[in-house]
């Protein structure tokens, strides 16, 4: 019995060593919406781009939802800098502080089941890269197609970004 307890303690220690990320480290790995991984997979049809994006969640399904949200967020606020050529390197919203200025709009836009879903769809055969980080967390990578042209029109209509040449 004592032997099994010792083995248990050793295994637990090992597990902590492997998954011993502190809360802040986990946040840095992509728990927060601003710190996710995203890379370009190429240009899609007119006005779309293919992106591989990662999301986190308690269940793989939650992580996929988060990944989709992250994909749209990246196109709007970050630009896609890594990966293959063919994606927009500049974000749709360039004005500093725009996310805070239009917080009401974006909170509603990115809410669960919000209108961000109209601009993102799963690309390819739907296969996902799934990593179990700890007992309660999955990290999932999916390839999605983001309709950035439609997204831009939506943001123009909402008055978040100006139309090209607005004022002329």
């Amino acid at each position: 019995m004592k032997k099994w307890t010792i083995i248990g303690i050793i295994l637990m220690t090992f597990s902590i060593a492997v998954n011993g990320q502190s809360r802040s480290e986990r946040r840095a790995a992509g728990y927060v919406i601003d710190n996710y991984e995203v890379s370009c997979m190429g240009t899609g049809m007119d006005g779309t781009q293919l992106i591989k994006v990662w999301g986190f969640g308690k269940k793989p399904e939650d992580a996929i939802h988060q990944a989709r949200k992250n994909a749209v967020h990246a196109v709007i606020f970050k630009g896609i800098l890594g990966g293959q050529p063919g994606c927009m390197q500049r974000p749709l919203v360039n004005k500093p502080g725009s996310e805070v200025q239009h917080a009401d709009y974006f909170n509603n836009f990115f809410s669960n089941g919000g209108s961000y879903l109209r601009f993102v769809s799963q690309a390819g055969d739907g296969s996902v890269d799934r990593i179990k980080i700890d007992k309660r967390t999955y990290k999932v990578g999916v390839v999605v197609s983001v309709m950035h042209a439609q997204l831009r029109r939506e943001l123009e209509a909402a008055g978040i970004i100006p139309k090209l040449g607005q004022g002329f």
């Binding site: 240009t43 063919g86 927009m88 500049r90 831009r152 970004i161 040449g165 607005q166």
Partner: peptide, 20 residues
């Protein structure tokens, strides 16, 4: 065509910055 689609939005984004 792929090259145009890849670059036109970045180009327009910079053009918009010029207009701003």
């Amino acid at each position: 065509e792929e090259a145009v689609l890849s670059h036109i939005d970045d180009f327009n984004s910079r053009l918009q910055s010029h207009f701003d």
